[in-house]
Structure formats: structure tokens, C-alpha cells
Design a protein around this nucleic acid. Structure first.
Length: 743
RNA sequence: GCGUUCAUAGCUCAGUUGGAUAGAGCAACAGCCUUCUAAGCUGUGGGUCGCAGGUUCGAAUCCUGCUGGACGCACCA
């Protein structure tokens, strides 16, 4: 007998128990277990609703229909369910719902903005970005499954002091950095420039070397700003600072009216209602195996059709006061980088609703700062512009306290420890300010109920500051009422709706040679491993059993099908590695672990679905069952009738029923698992569930041979297999892990 | 120093809104492919749930203190 126990504390009254038995959700009793129990009862109700002879209006639960007995034992009340009936109910509801099985409406009518991936355009797309990308993409699917309208935003790191440095390096490092490289591999080129800049600045001799000498060494002409007394290091730093300042100045010239902009955003807010469908469709596409894989090989680099004229670009390096040159160079950096990122995302099978950049908020940064200064919410301190924050204040020793006072506070009237820094003393913006502006713009645009930032835990302080600033702003909203009522509205709306979905670091991630790993190389390494594995199997003559006919004809290591399969396996391994543990846990990176395809891995799950699929095909072929027609037949039945009960009902006396039942019990939890994953913004709840489900199935698979059973018996197993496949595939799609028909 | 966060088997981790005997995978060892895909399955060994108190009928789970690690702490993002 199956036991469904849930906790009932000793003080539980008879009426409370009665309330439970009457299926009213009584919060506070039973917690998680009552949720499972209630879910089960909902299914019974649904079943009864459809049962012939019963009125649909007033579903009646015949307790004895589903339960054999109830007993009180210790702190528990145990319900003993009739396993065979329960199993038929669950299989039926999975077949009916198909890919929508487990979907719920907890987020209906709510909009959630998910800010994830967010690569920096000056740096290669690395493993840290993969983690944010994998977690974010998966949360988008999970929330979407819970009925939320999801808006996926990629917030590019396309602005900030570092871009001054990059432009400086671009303009002065001529030798060793040919522009052809910039055109072919923009990200790697920019990364080299970035690294080159730091290498130069950190070089001890740069402190004393005459800047003019170095400029010539790098292939440049004399530069008016390099005076005789200026060292190379100081020249580079000054030049970089100036260039970013000019860039931001140039950006400010595109400035729009803040109030007008917010008004426009608000009025256009509801025009775009298609986003939810996009999320749903992206899941469907993956399931159908039709995900359009853009492999590095077939990607057309000419797609990055951006005019790069060497001389023209070099002219941009020449100094103009209005920053037009810096702006032109930066624009090209940005475009090339975005194209490159899109190529990577297409390999990963991840999409975004919007690409935004920090630069977009820079347009309004000045306005916001002025407003905050005028309302005295922000103020100057040591030349910089800050918002005093009182959290995280130091309980340090007297000495430190005194130091803090001196250091952080011009007026010594406040013991603020870590203020929010909005702008530097040279007047340029900092990213906290840009995040404030961005949140305001997004709220005006999307009117979100929730916005999550999927960013590493090392940025906790930053987001704490950001959230606290909105708290302070909301408290001071009256000061904004006058000329800024729309701004005030946004600020009040935002408060309390932001959250930082943080994740741990990747430790020890480097190539085997010890350098930084580019994501693409990482994926390729996993793909290569999968290829080798396939070839290993080939030597045994097995591969061709499972590959498409076209591949059988061309048993080549390089056949497209094999390569595609290998890539999907590699992606499965790599993505799952980032999703299998709780977000907060640091991932100890180890090539052997990531490239292992055994045990708790992505390929294990992919293998399980391929295996089920293969078995389903074999059954259909050998028994002459048209699977699609058969399942469609069940699906189309509006009411459950006796014939359907026969098709679904697996007798409890069957030898394999015990194992089937334990799998079905697990399948019945899917919806709760998704909901829980959404509640905690934790994809690993789904991945852990899938591993356990796959493990249960593989045990069943190993223990019972189905081919050879009587046709009526095996047809019921066929529906059961289909149900298992449906749930695992659904879960994999939710994690952005490619599904393989065979492998 | 302050803040955040983590500590469960040799290793990597589940289990944490208090509940029944703390579970997987990897590694080790012993088995299972003429039979539905062995990227699988079965079995064995392996635990003071970091330490010490507290709350409770009951604690890996909640509270306090301690120890150890990771990350962060004024013009980088």
C-alpha cells in the first residue's frame, strides 16, 4: 500500500483534521506535505468531474475511490492510496496535457524581468557568464511555466571607465594588434587590447619611461598630450580617463527629456504582448528537436557586416573635443561584440527579448544625479557624488571608526560606512548610478511585478546598495512630487520588487595550459569528448544502430549528424554542470568532472530520454502500433470512459507494477517541483528532480524486459513510457539542455 | 576589523519554511551485455551532519557563541 503521510502537530484539532479531509487548504498545517496531498486530491476531483454519471458541477470525492485507509501514527496522518487507480489518473493527466503537464498559474497576470548573462563587451564570454546565462535562461522558462509574463534582458557591460582604457589601447597599440584581427575575432582582439593596457600600466618601467618614446615604439606619431615630463603609465591613465569622459559627454548629447521619455515608455507599455508566447515557443522548439543550431562552422561571419575602415578608425583616434571619435570607435566595438555574442547564444540555444546596455542609461545619468542632488538625497563627498547608506555600518574599533569618519564623510555628521557611489570626482558616472537609472527606465517600460538580477554573489554589496537606495528614494518620494511625479511613481513602484539571484564562483577554471577559458573552447572540448565516445562505440559496431540512416551511409567522424549529436551532448554536459547544484555553491571546476558523461550529468539525462524513445519505437514497430494515433486517441477523449480506463489501467498485481508506481508517484510531483524552483529561483530543484526520475526509470528499464509481452499489456506500458518521456523532456527543455532522439 | 555566505561519506553534492531508519553520484572493490541503447544496472565498504551550548515531545534543519574556508568593503564592473 502506498503511504501519503503528512505532519499533523499534536495540538491539531478534530475540526482542523476535518478541514483537511474536506480538502480546504488550511495553511499552517502540514506545510509541504499537505501541498503534495492537495495536489493529489485535485487530480481526484478532476477525475471525478470527468467520470460518467457524475455531475460536472458538483464534483464529489468518493474517498474510497482513491484511498484504502487512513491512520494516525505518531505525529502523522497516513493516507493509503489505491496505487493502480492513482497511476492511471496520473498517466491520463500527463497524456492529456502533453508538454503543458505541470504548468501552473501561480504567476498569472504578473510580469517578471530577468536580467541575466550580461557579458562585458571588452572581455571574452567566459565561464562566469555561462553560469548566469544557464541559470537565467532556465529561470525564464520556469517562471514562464508558472504563468508569468517573462521579459529576458541581456544587459551588456558596454560602458564605463574601462572603455576609455580600451580606446586608448586601440589608438596607441598599433604594432602587434593588426585591425584584421579586430575584424575576424573582435572579442579576442578587444580582450588582448584590454590585457595589453594593464600589462603596460603595471609594468614597473612604465613609471619612469618617457611616454613619447613608448608611443613611437608602438608605432604611433608624436602626441601633443605627451609632455616631456610625462611617464608612459601616467600618460595611458590620463588618456584613458579623458577618453571616457569625452565618450560620456558625446553620449550626453543624445540626451532626451527624462520626463518625456518616461511618459513615452509608459504609454507604449502594453503594445508588446507577444513576449510570453516567445518563451513558450522556445520551449516547444527545443522539444521538437528543431532547435536551430548555429554551429561555428556554418555561421556566416559576413553577418557582422560592419564597416571597418582602418584609416577612418585611426582618424577617430585624433582628438576632438566633442568626443565624436571616441563615440565612433566605441560604437564599432559594441556592434561587433554584440554580433559575436549572438553567435554564441545561438550555439547555446538561448535567446533574449531585449539587448540593453549600460550606455543607454548614461543618457539620463546626469538628470538623475541633478535631481538627487537638488533634493539632497545625494550629496558630494570628497569630490564624488554619494548617497549615504546606513546599513553595513561598521562596529569597528574606535580607531577604525575615526578613520571611517575622516575618510567617508566631509561633515563628520554621520557614521555611514559604505556609501553608494554614484559618480566619480571627475564627473563621470559609476555603475551603481547606471543601475538606478536602468531600473527606473525598465519599470516605466515594463511595469514589472518583479525584477531579478542573475549576477554572481561577489556583487552582493552592490545590489544591497541598489535596493537600499530605492528604499531611501521611496521614503523621500514627496521631495520629487513637484516636477517629477512620473519619476516618483516609478520609484515607489520599484521599491521591494528587485532581487539579486546570486550564484557562486567558478573556482580553478583555466585551460589546461593555465589561461582564461573562452566559452566556445570549453564547449568544443566537451563536444570533442563526446565525438570520441561516439567513435569508441562505433568500433564496436553499435553507433549505426542509433544514428539516422543518412549517417549510416557515411560512417564518418565528420558526418553532420554525428557532429550535431556530439555538440548537443557537450552542451548538455556543460550546461548541466552549472545547474546541478544550488546556485550559491561555488563550483570547483575540474575538467574530468565536467567531461564525465556518467552518473549525475546532463548526458545521463539525455541518454535516458534517447533510451525511452528507442524503446517506444521498437514497441511500435514490432507490435504495429501507430504511436501518434494511439496517444491522440486518448488525448481527444473528453470524458474518461470505461474503455479509456482499460487502456490506462495497469493492474497492481502485475510483476512490474511496484516499480512503475514509484515512477508515477514521482511524476505526480512535477508541478510542485516547478513551483518550488520558481519560489526559490533555483533551477537545481528541477535538475535534482530529473536525476532522481531518470534513475528510477533506468532501474525499471533494467529490471523488466517489455518486448515480448502481450499486446494489451505492452500498450499500457507504451503510454506509461510516453508519460515518463514527456516529463523528462519537459524538464530538460526547462534547463535549456538539448534533447536527443537517439545517441 | 566589519559585512555576506558556506561547512553533511575519501571527493562532488542532495536533504534545510523542525518530523519516521540522513541519501545520491564519483572513486574503490565484486558482479551483469548472443535478449528493449553498458553514457546503463546490481551489490559491498564508507557518517560524531565543523565544534559547543540553547529552544522543542522531536534538530542536519531554528537561535547564540566559537572554529575554518570563500567573497566583498570610495571613485573598476
Amino acid at each position: 500500500m502506498a503511504k501519503y503521510g503528512f505532519k499533523a502537530p499534536p495540538e491539531t484539532t478534530a475540526s482542523e483534521i476535518s478541514a483537511i479531509l474536506n480538502f480546504n487548504s488550511t495553511a499552517g498545517i502540514g506545510g509541504k506535505r499537505i501541498a503534495v496531498f492537495k495536489n493529489l486530491l485535485d487530480k481526484v476531483k478532476a477525475y471525478n468531474k470527468a467520470k460518467p454519471g457524475l455531475s460536472g458541477r458538483q464534483p464529489v470525492l468518493y474517498f474510497e475511490d482513491l484511498f484504502k485507509a487512513v491512520e494516525a501514527k505518531g505525529p502523522y496522518i497516513n493516507f493509503y492510496v489505491k496505487k493502480d487507480l492513482f497511476s492511471a489518473l496520473i498517466i491520463r493527466s500527463i497524456l492529456k496535457a502533453g508538454n503543458n503537464y505541470g504548468r501552473n498559474v501561480s504567476g498569472k497576470g504578473k510580469t517578471i524581468v530577468i536580467d541575466f548573462s550580461s557579458p562585458n563587451i571588452a572581455k571574452p564570454f567566459g565561464v562566469g557568464h555561462l553560469r548566469s546565462t544557464a541559470i537565467g535562461a532556465s529561470l525564464a522558462n520556469i517562471y514562464s511555466f508558472c504563468g508569468y509574463k517573462v521579459i529576458k534582458i541581456n544587459y551588456l557591460g558596454d560602458f564605463g571607465t574601462q572603455f576609455g582604457k580600451l580606446i586608448t589601447a586601440f589608438c596607441f597599440f598599433k604594432k602587434g594588434f593588426p585591425l584584421s584581427e579586430f575584424k575576424d575575432e573582435p572579442i579576442k582582439f578587444l580582450y588582448k587590447l584590454y590585457a595589453g593596457f594593464y600589462k603596460e600600466v603595471e609594468d614597473e618601467s612604465a613609471k619612469s619611461t618617457d611616454a613619447r618614446v613608448k608611443i613611437k615604439e608602438w608605432g604611433g606619431k608624436d602626441n601633443a598630450n605627451a609632455s616631456a615630463t610625462m611617464s608612459w603609465r601616467s600618460f595611458l591613465e590620463t588618456d584613458a580617463r579623458t577618453r571616457f569622459k569625452k565618450l560620456e559627454f558625446a553620449m550626453g548629447k543624445n540626451k532626451k527629456d527624462l520626463n518625456g521619455f518616461l511618459k513615452d515608455c509608459k504609454s507604449n507599455r502594453n503594445l508588446d504582448n507577444t513576449k510570453m508566447d516567445i518563451n513558450i515557443n522556445s520551449i516547444r522548439n527545443i522539444k521538437g528537436g528543431n532547435r536551430n543550431m548555429n554551429t561555428p562552422e556554418n555561421y556566416n561571419k559576413n553577418g557582422t557586416n560592419i564597416d571597418i575602415d582602418r584609416d577612418e578608425l585611426c582618424n577617430f583616434c585624433n582628438r576632438r573635443k566633442d568626443g565624436a571619435g571616441e563615440f565612433a570607435i566605441w560604437t564599432r566595438f559594441r556592434k561587433l561584440s554584440i554580433n559575436e555574442f549572438k553567435r554564441i547564444y545561438s550555439i547555446l540555444g538561448v535567446s533574449f527579448d531585449y539587448y540593453e546596455g549600460e550606455s543607454e542609461s548614461a543618457v539620463f545619468a546626469g538628470d538623475i544625479v541633478n535631481i538627487l542632488l537638488n533634493t539632497q538625497i545625494a550629496r558630494q563627498s570628497m569630490g564624488a557624488i554619494i548617497i549615504p547608506l546606513d546599513f553595513g555600518s561598521s562596529k569597528a574599533s574606535g580607531k577604525n571608526k575615526a578613520e571611517n569618519k575622516d575618510k567617508y564623510n566631509d561633515n563628520n555628521d554621520n557614521e555611514t560606512a559604505v556609501p553608494g557611489l554614484l559618480a566619480k570626482s571627475d564627473g563621470t558616472s559609476l555603475y551603481l548610478l547606471r543601475d538606478i537609472v536602468t531600473a527606473i527606465i525598465r519599470y516605466a517600460k515594463y511595469n514589472f511585478d518583479k525584477m531579478i538580477y542573475v549576477v554572481g554573489s561577489e556583487q552582493s554589496l552592490h545590489f544591497n546598495q541598489l535596493f537600499n537606495i530605492f528604499k531611501i528614494l521611496a521614503e523621500n518620494k514627496d521631495k520629487l512630487k513637484g516636477g517629477h511625479s512620473l519619476l516618483a511613481e516609478c520609484i515607489t513602484g520599484i521599491e521591494g520588487k528587485l532581487s539579486h539571484v546570486k550564484f557562486g564562483r567558478i573556482i580553478g577554471m583555466s585551460t589546461r595550459k593555465g589561461n582564461l577559458v573562452f566559452l566556445e573552447d570549453y564547449v568544443n572540448e566537451a563536444k570533442e569528448k563526446a565525438l570520441n565516445k561516439i567513435v569508441e562505440v562505433t568500433d564496436d559496431g553499435r553507433l549505426w544502430l542509433h544514428m539516422p540512416d543518412s549517417a549510416k551511409d557515411k560512417p564518418s567522424y565528420y558526418s553532420t549528424e554525428i557532429k550535431d549529436t556530439a555538440l548537443k551532448i557537450g552542451l548538455g554536459a556543460v550546461i548541466f554542470n552549472d545547474l546541478k547544484t544550488r546556485r550559491i555553491t561555488d563550483v570547483n571546476f575540474n575538467w574530468d568532472n565536467v567531461l564525465s558523461f556518467e552518473g549525475q550529468t546532463g548526458p545521463y539525462l539525455q541518454y535516458t530520454t534517447a533510451r525511452i524513445n528507442s524503446l517506444i519505437s521498437r514497441i511500435c514497430t514490432e507490435y504495429g502500433v501507430d504511436k501518434d494515433k494511439y496517444i491522440k486517441n486518448i488525448r481527444s477523449k473528453k470524458k474518461a470512459g470505461e474503455d479509456e480506463a482499460d487502456m490506462l489501467h495497469i493492474p497492481g498485481t502485475d510483476e512490474d507494477f511496484g516499480d512503475i508506481y514509484s515512477i508515477i508517484k514521482y511524476l505526480s510531483l512535477f508541478s510542485d517541483v516547478i513551483k518550488e524552483a520558481a519560489d526559490f529561483s533555483e533551477p537545481s530543484i528541477v535538475s535534482t528532480y530529473l536525476l532522481e526520475l531518470a534513475s528510477l526509470f533506468n532501474k525499471y528499464y533494467q529490471n523488466y524486459k517489455l518486448l515480448g509481452l502481450e499486446i494489451e499489456t505492452i500498450k499500457k506500458r507504451l503510454l506509461f513510457l510516453y508519460a515518463v518521456k514527456t516529463v523528462i523532456s519537459s524538464g530538460l527543455a526547462m534547463l535549456s539542455i538539448p534533447i536527443l532522439e537517439r545517441m
